[in-house]
Simulated assay, not measured.
Amino acid sequence: MPSSPHVIRHKAAVNRPRRETLNGHRSINLWFTGLSGSGKSTLAHAVEERLHLMGCRTYVFDGDNVRHGLCRDLGFSLPERKENLRRIAEMIKLFLDAGVISLTAFISPLESDRAMAKEIIGPENVIEVYCNCPLEICEQRDVKGLYKKARAGEIQNYTGISSPYEAPQQPDIDIDTGTLPLQECVNKIITVLRERWIILK
């Protein structure tokens, strides 16, 4: 999408490195992807809670919450899902500049759309977390009854049923969210953040 004409980017004196220094950690995006019911939101919020207790500045972009505001005009066709992720990627760029650790919990079913988001954000700024959970377990966890409705044909374009999900081929973190305890999943992610010098505590 072309930039708006006659708009010149302003270069701020207070920049990302200065904000990161003030915050005491680097900014990064943790991009959680997986089927509905795979534990993306649960894990993202659990990681945020741990980081918050460590004194980190964080924010979770939850797929459902975003669709109540920023992306309320979008449906669930593949082109609309792509636009949903494009908007989120642009928002994440702002949070990176603010020195914040952002966590995004979106199904993001297509590899091409995830690649687009990474390109916008900057691949070096994204840690892709694959919540690897079998469809049958996701359906067992179906607290909202959405899989059941999708199976009955009441919901169209439902990922894993009537719309495809392409699992990441080389995620930065591959977590078995179908069987591992939540805190063990959190520990794995915190370990990676320490190994990459995102957080120093």
Rank of each mutant, 00 (worst) to 15 (best):
P164W: 02
G55W: 03
W197H: 15
L180V: 03
G99L: 00
F76K: 05
S4H: 05
L94N: 07
F32Y: 12
A89F: 04
L103Q: 10
L51V: 10
Q156T: 05
S27K: 08
T104I: 13
A167D: 07
P134C: 04
N23P: 00
V7H: 00
K40S: 09
Y147W: 15
R72L: 05
Q140F: 04
A98W: 03
I107G: 08
R151M: 07
N29K: 00
V100G: 03
K93H: 02
S41A: 15
V66G: 02
N132A: 12
S36F: 02
V100E: 07
F32T: 03
A44P: 15
D62R: 07
E20Q: 13
N187H: 02
M91S: 09
K201N: 13
A150K: 12
I101Q: 14
L110H: 00
C138R: 06
R16C: 00
I28G: 04
C131P: 10
P181E: 02
R19H: 01
R141P: 07
E166S: 04
L35S: 03
R19A: 00
P5D: 02
N65F: 05
L193D: 02
P164M: 10
K148N: 15
L74P: 03
I120R: 05
G178L: 12
K201G: 14
W197G: 08
R86T: 11
I88V: 14
V60P: 05
L78W: 06
I28E: 03
L35P: 03
E83G: 02
Q140P: 03
G160M: 09
P5L: 01
S162K: 06
I107L: 12
V192W: 00
Q183D: 15
N15M: 01
S41M: 15
D97F: 01
I127W: 14
R194Y: 09
G153I: 03
Y59V: 12
G145V: 10
C185D: 09
R141H: 11
T58S: 14
I137H: 10
L51A: 11
G55H: 07
A105P: 13
G122L: 11
P181N: 12
M1R: 08
M54N: 05
P164H: 05
C71D: 04
N125F: 12
S38V: 04
L146A: 13
P168M: 08
I127Y: 12
R57D: 01
R9F: 02
Y147M: 14
C131Y: 10
T177S: 13
N29C: 15
V129C: 08
V66D: 06
I88M: 12
E83N: 03
S162G: 06
T191F: 11
I189T: 00
E20K: 02
D142C: 07
L53D: 15
K188G: 00
L22M: 07
Y130Q: 10
F61W: 04
E128W: 13
Q170H: 11
P109K: 15
K40P: 08
Q140D: 05
I28Q: 08
A115P: 09
M91V: 13
T179E: 11
K11P: 00
D174C: 14
T58E: 10
L70A: 06
A13I: 01
P17G: 02
A117C: 13
P109V: 15
L94F: 14
R86S: 11
C56P: 05
I101F: 15
